[in-house]
Amino acid sequence: MEKDFIHQRKIIYDRYVRYLFIACAALMTIIIFSIIFFVGKQGLMTFTDVSPIEFFFTDKWNPLAHKYGALSFIAGSVVVTITAIIIGTPLGLLGAVFMSKIAPKRLRNIMRPAVDLYVAIPSVVYGYIGLTVLVPIIRSVFYVNMGYGVLVTSIILAVMILPTIISISEDALNGVPKPLEEASLALGATYWQTIYKVIVPSAAPGILTAIVLAMARAIGETMAVQMVIGNTPLMPKGLFTPTSTLTSNIVIEMGNTPFGSAWGNSLFLMALVLLIISLLMILAIRRIGSRRYS
């Protein structure tokens, strides 16, 4: 009887704990969906005042004169992200190869936490260093007037995405089965040939995942970008022209923009565009990830 009772209690206890977990999971889901719903609802309300064609395909941004062309911000975000990937990927990938295959174990044990440290640096610090160190350097090296712009932003973003690229690529490289490597060496390939003909291609899905994740991080970065990009609402025309990104324009204008106005809504629409881009990237990662094991 007594034993039965204890057993009963345990079952009840078990059930309640399960409810707790379900509640937590539900809460998480509710939060993310309400964010998407809120941003989406507020953002899509823009289209009651502005045509989608104007928003996505013109670059004249002057809400005070009812011009809501956001193309320059979208282009700015894309250009800066791609340039950052072009700078950051080779660096990160080579670093990952070094750490995974070449570095002696002791060095590796120092480098891993060092790479993790990158993540611990707040983005405002990256921005501040960019503003006070990198901008003057670019100004004097390239003889440009302002120094703000695509190049300095991309360099900073490239540094910020390095840890993502390095740690995920390194995991992918470590995951390549040892026999592949050994077979390649046994066939007479040099170590270098083995790395770039066997190991890196086998790890390609993981490396691709790293790059896409890094892109997601780069396109969403706000603070550091805002400090060095110049925030000029014009199309990016070169590496040294100041421009704007979706994130930098949101942060610059949100403070003084009436909520619920076409202007405020269009900022939410920019947030929605970012959200959709990130969502697509995550879907892409899932596809790449599933291909790896099929």
Partner: peptide, 23 residues
């Protein structure tokens, strides 16, 4: 209309710093 060809900062302090450091 203001020209769009300008660097935009989000506060008085940031404008001051930008002007002080940009030739």
């Amino acid at each position: 209309q203001f020209t769009d060809n300008a660097s935009i900062q989000d506060s008085n302090g940031a404008v001051l710093k930008g002007v002080a450091t940009t030739p």
